[in-house]
Computed example of a mutant assay.
Amino acid sequence: MEELSYDFKVRKHKIEEILDNTDTVKEVDQFPNNEGFTYTNGYKAWAGAIFVDLRDSTSLFTEQEDVEIAKVVRGFTSEIIEMLRSGTEDKELKEIGIRGDCVFAVYSAPTKSDVYEIANRAFHINTYMKMLNKLLLDRDLPEIKAGIGLSISPTLAVKAGRKNSGINNLVWIGKSVATAAKLSDLGNKRGIQPIVMSKLFYDNMIELQVKKNSNKEPKSWYTKAYDEKFGDYYHACIIKEKFDDWINTGMK
């Protein structure tokens, strides 16, 4: 392989600029607009993450025709992205994207109502999976399952990439994103229900869910479990009733 056109002598000075000019990390109640992030600062605040991970994607990708795979993956990703971004502003939704067979989003979550709103998106997505599978079945396409992981934590966010290259993104340093990704891998297999949330996430949203469902017993919807890596966590299969009723009555 020939040498890259990479001038390591010049780039050494660029690296030194990066290392020497990153000078502030501010602890804030809420992450600023994306324009507030530069290549010299960072912010630490409460972040909430949701990961929606397609189950057994290896079998899907190896056993189905390419056109069928494309249809299923697009049906899976497009509406989940819509539900993750719907009704949000720049200060709330910090990042949304796709990693392999997983759709994810990261939100600023300074209040318990923010945490509940992330959970509410998970309930909608869980219900959507039922709708999607009915539509797939009608077209003789393979049905699919997903695990939905939820977590919150104080999180450091820094802008990374290369200035003026157009290649940059926020890097999330903390438990929220990593834990949500790992919890999504637990969901919808080995007896674990689809929605899986860290204990801290559950503790910060359950009171509001109880208040919003005063004629029901929301705490009974969850099962507490333990994992050596994550400690205590909660899992459930919660659906949005109005959405579910529409699905059950023919989606007309």
Rank of each mutant, 00 (worst) to 15 (best):
I247P: 06
F61V: 14
L208D: 11
Q30E: 14
L200F: 10
K211A: 06
P218G: 04
L186N: 12
D56P: 00
D7I: 09
T40P: 10
I206R: 01
A49P: 05
K211Q: 11
T22R: 13
K240F: 06
D101N: 07
E228D: 15
L132C: 09
G48A: 13
S220Q: 07
T24S: 13
A109Y: 01
R162K: 12
K130Y: 02
A160S: 02
M251H: 07
S86V: 14
N164T: 06
D140H: 01
Y222Q: 12
N169V: 08
S153T: 12
R74G: 11
M251A: 09
S108R: 00
D90W: 03
D56V: 14
Q193H: 08
T22V: 10
N34I: 12
M129F: 06
S176A: 14
R99D: 12
F61C: 13
P110A: 08
T223R: 07
E207M: 08
D232Y: 13
V115R: 06
K26L: 15
G48Y: 04
V158S: 13
L156G: 05
I98S: 10
E2F: 14
S86Q: 15
W46A: 15
S108L: 13
A122C: 04
N204W: 00
I69K: 12
V171Y: 01
Y226E: 15
K175L: 11
Q193D: 09
D101K: 07
L208G: 12
V25N: 07
D29L: 11
N126I: 00
I192A: 00
K175R: 13
V103K: 03
S153A: 15
L19V: 15
F31Q: 04
Y226A: 14
N120L: 11
Y39G: 02
D245P: 00
I98N: 12
V171F: 02
K224Q: 12
R121S: 03
Y202T: 05
I192L: 06
N204D: 01
G149D: 07
A122Y: 03
I125H: 06
K242W: 01
K211I: 10
L150E: 06
R74D: 13
T24Y: 09
L150T: 02
K130T: 09
V103T: 07
R74F: 12
R74H: 14
L156A: 06
L19G: 11
E16Q: 05
D20F: 11
